[in-house]
């Protein structure tokens, strides 16, 4: 794993300051969606080889939730953005 993560608020920080929550799930299904859709959303996770978007919490720094683009093969990290930006994208 790359040891430095570029927090959009704090700059380059060691990965020890972060807590990894897991993949950014698909948009939340509507309340009336069938059981299978909800089961998928709540429990089933992909385990992709390659690019992966994950929620990271900068628990040792600004305490903001971030969305980090990571390659699960090379562990290279790409874009890191504040998770609140997903709201404006309509993906939260």
């Amino acid at each position: 794993m790359s040891s430095l993560v570029k927090c959009p608020h704090c700059g380059l920080r060691p990965r020890e300051e972060f807590t990894i929550r897991g993949e950014v799930a698909t948009p939340r299904p509507h309340a009336g969606a069938d059981e299978g859709t909800w089961f998928d959303h709540v429990y089933l996770r992909d385990n992709p080889r390659g690019q992966h978007r994950e929620y990271w919490h900068h628990s040792g720094g600004c305490r903001r939730w971030l969305v980090l683009d990571r390659n699960t093969v090379t562990h290279e990290t790409g874009d890191v953005v504040d998770a609140s930006t997903l709201k404006t994208e309509g993906q939260a």
Binding site: C10, E17, G61, C62
Partner: peptide, 10 residues
Amino acid sequence: SAMTQIGHIG
């Protein structure tokens, strides 16, 4: 100034 950790202490 920076919010960070010293060892495991924030």
